[in-house]
Structure formats: C-alpha cells, structure tokens
C-alpha cells in the first residue's frame, strides 16, 4: 500500500481537504497513527515552557541603551551634548564674572556662584534650553563686569578678550549642534545669529584695538 506523503499529512493536520485522503486514512492504520503522532507533536511544541533569559542579558542590553551617557539615540545625544557644552560655557562665564567681581567693589555673591550650583541640574532638554537662555543673560552680565574691569588699572584685558571670544565660539558651536537636529527652531536660530553677530563685533574691535594699540577691548 502506498502511504500518504508528508505534504499530504501536513495539509491534513492543517485541516485542509485532500482528495482521497479520507478514504485512505479509513483503511490505513499506519497513516492514521502518523497523523495522530504529528498532531501530538504539535501540541507538545505549543506546550514547551517559556525560558528564562540569561541573568547577564540585561547588563549587555543596558550597555547599548540610549541613557546614562552611553550609546544614545540622536535626540538624546544632542541634548546631552548641549548640556555638556552649556556646562563648559558656563565655566567660562563664571570665570569672567568672578574676575569682574574681584575687580568690582561690593556685590560679592553674584550670579557666577549661582550658575555653578544650578548647572549640575541641566539634564533634560528643557534644562539645557533654559541654560542656553540663561547663558545669554549671563554673558551680558559678564560683559558689563569686564567692561568695568577694562576701565580699571591692572585689569588683565587681553586674556579676557580671548576668553570672551572663546565663550562666543562655544555658544556658536552649541547652537549649531542643536540646530543640526532642530534646524527650524526659532530660539536656537536667534541664539546662533546673536552669537555670530557678537563674535564678529568682538573680532572687529580686536582688529581696531591691534591697529590703534589701545588696551580697551570692550565695546
């Protein structure tokens, strides 16, 4: 007797109708047994227990997650970069403010120390953006201090001028990094534009100062 093929048995297992198969099964205990065995096997497959994941698997996954300064997705990445660059920028401003305080009488506990304590909390996009905004204001404050400083005898104006330029470079870079992800953001664009304009003004002043030999670098 010719038995049913594996394809036919498989089709029967799926409930399909195959010409002549029903009659064959009625007269062939071998094929009936085979079909029943396949049915049992399928049930056993479905009843296989769930497996426990290896205990070390989470640590391997964690190392690739977009959090905690490790491998990051694009959006988280630029937020982090902004936060870090803002932090670096803040340090420059704090230095400028601190020097300003040193040379300016009174007002000892100024925004510089406040900036240092607040900086550590800038871990989200909102924080980073707030820091960028605050740095704009801090930059202006630092500038005012440095202007006063420049007017005083013994002020270290050349190095502070370079710091001012470096600060603006950092602000430009931070803005450009953010804009690479959010090119249409109006706030970021305004910061980039303002920083570039300010930087150009500083360079113009430095060229004028170099030409005239003047020690006054600030506005």
């Amino acid at each position: 007797m010719v038995h049913l093929s594996e394809e036919t048995l498989s089709e029967l297992l799926e409930g399909e109708s195959v010409t002549g198969a029903k009659e064959h099964l009625a007269s062939c205990p071998v094929c009936r047994g085979e079909l029943e065995a396949l049915r049992r096997l399928r049930s056993e497959l479905r009843e296989l227990p769930e497996l426990d994941a290896p205990p070390e698997l989470w640590s391997r996954i964690e190392a690739r997650l977009p959090v905690g300064g490790r491998a990051r997705g694009t959006r988280r990445g630029w937020r982090s970069q902004i936060a870090m660059q803002v932090a670096a920028l803040a340090a420059v401003f704090v230095l400028g403010l601190g020097l300003g305080r040193m040379f300016a009488p009174g007002d000892q506990a100024g925004p510089g120390s406040q900036l240092v304590s607040e900086r550590a909390a800038a871990t989200s996009l909102a924080d980073a953006m707030a820091e960028v905004r605050r740095l704009g204001a801090q930059y202006d404050a630092a500038l005012r201090n440095l202007e006063q400083l420049a007017a005083q005898e013994g002020a270290p104006t050349p190095s502070l001028a370079e710091q001012r330029l470096a600060s603006l470079d950092a602000l430009v870079e931070a803005s450009r990094t953010a804009l690479s992800v959010e090119p249409a953001d109006p706030v970021l664009n305004s910061y980039l534009f303002a920083a570039l304009e300010e930087r150009a003004a500083v360079l113009r002043q430095m060229r004028v100062q170099q030409g005239s030999g003047s020690e006054v670098l600030w506005r």
Partner: peptide, 27 residues
Amino acid sequence: ASRVYTVVRRLAGDNDLAADLAQDAWA
C-alpha cells in the same frame, strides 16, 4: 524578558546566538 528570549531561542536553536539576538532585539 522571558517571552522575548523564548521566541528568539526557539528560532535560533542555540543559546549563545539566542542571547545575542535577544540583546539586539531589546536594544
């Protein structure tokens, strides 16, 4: 974790490969 590991382990037929696949899937 169990559900994900189980399906990749069944498809992979191998423990080490399954761990790699589960890691990639979760990441």
